[in-house]
Write a protein that binds this DNA or RNA. Structure first.
Lengths: 216, 216
DNA sequence: ACGTCGGGTTTGGTATACCGCTAATACGCC
DNA sequence: GGCGTATTAGCGGTATACCAAACCCGACGT
């Protein structure tokens, strides 16, 4: 299936660039995003920039301010807890469906993601570990075989990456993913749901701690 | 500052027009959406059209086909069941939070929506009943006091409208809403969750019946 | 010192043009 | 006459230029 691609609009490239800049902290929360400036910097016209900014607004990474420049979004503790609540609902469903509908091929892909994450976490490679963790979530979502759920996951992915970037205990996350993987393999739905809730609790407390520390 | 409202981009107007056209069946599933044609029809340039099309794609009403014209989305039974699964997760959360966090003012607004829906349903005014039902859902979501949840509700709203337009038993829906309202007032979380699941089951079977009948 | 006003800036929008790809049509071959 | 192919018309993606409305900020006046 991977094929069929091979074409990428300029606006997608710009979107990715901007998204990575924001998530990597190159563009700090609150900083200005001026269309003409960005167009000059990235060597494109204003149109792809406008498209990209619109996309990032729907991803929740950019705050538009009508009639004037947009800014990189600043996340509040409320935003974090809101995200936690939505994840508790959506991921419970995702993992439950994944456990029920997993295929052999999907499971293999999931195992590969998991191994990559464990390996990177043990090596202390935060960038790779987080990328693998994101892949793990994406693969689980595809296992759930619900197109709408996949769409929602895509729009939440940026916020998830943001959350994960404020997470220190990468090995702990990876181990929880391993437990979830085992439960999915065993089709043990009750255990999956229990683990998801535990997983979310961990993410929540880690992010809270991070926000507290960056405040002072 | 007071009047930060009172301004509406052209693209929003176009989006609304197109969305209503699609939902009302003026533009049939599968029909072409050609940017230049739409621009001429609606008397605007291509840019607002592009913006509107993009918005409708994220709302799931339009299927983009890279490099060529977009088409009005055709919903499949799978799409309906996917939506049902997502709603089961999201609305359970929404109504639970609403029951826990409701305010007096919010409750009054909700009662008003409900009364309007009951009245319209009894009168047999399908258009008004569906509008009121949508308002009811929106108000419940605002009661949940979760900004992200509200965002997701907005993107799912079009699909909900689509689903509701395939629903005949408007009085039944209104009565279920009334039960939900009572449970929210009583902060009876277990009952809310039970009612939400029943509510979803009803929507699901109604839509399924509709798809079957339109098939033959 | 503080409030107000105005100019520079930025966005949202329109018009126009061009390129590369898509798809529909017409042609030619069998 | 039917079918596969080549040509062509059409469409989306992007670039450039320009305008109006609204915002930001600093300068000015009180």
């Amino acid at each position: 299936m991977a094929g069929s691609e091979g074409f990428e609009p300029e606006s997608d490239r710009v979107t990715r660039q901007l998204r990575d800049d924001i998530l990597d902290g190159v563009r700090r929360p609150g900083s200005k995003l001026v269309e003409r400036e960005l167009a000059a910097e990235l060597g494109v016209s204003r149109l792809p920039i406008r498209d990209a900014l619109k996309a990032l607004v729907t991803e929740g990474l950019v705050t538009p301010r009508p009639r004037t420049w947009a800014v990189v979004r600043e996340f509040s503790p409320t935003d974090v807890s809101d995200l936690g609540e939505v994840r508790s609902a959506l991921e419970t469903l995702t993992f439950r469906l994944a456990a029920q509908r997993r295929t052999r091929a999907g499971l293999e892909k999931l195992r590969a993601d998991l191994d990559a994450e464990l390996e990177a976490a043990q090596r202390g490679d935060a960038v790779q570990a987080r990328r693998a963790a994101a892949d793990f979530h994406e693969t689980v979502t595809s296992l759930a075989a619900n197109e709408l759920l996949s769409e929602l996951e895509r729009t939440l992915r940026s916020r998830m990456r943001w959350l994960l970037s404020r997470h220190d205990d990468l090995l702990g996350v990876a181990r929880e993913h391993e437990n979830l993987y085992d439960a999915i393999v065993a089709r043990d739905v009750p255990r999956v749901e229990e683990l998801v809730l535990k997983h979310l609790e961990m993410g929540r407390s880690a992010a809270a701690a991070h926000l507290r520390s960056s405040k002072e």
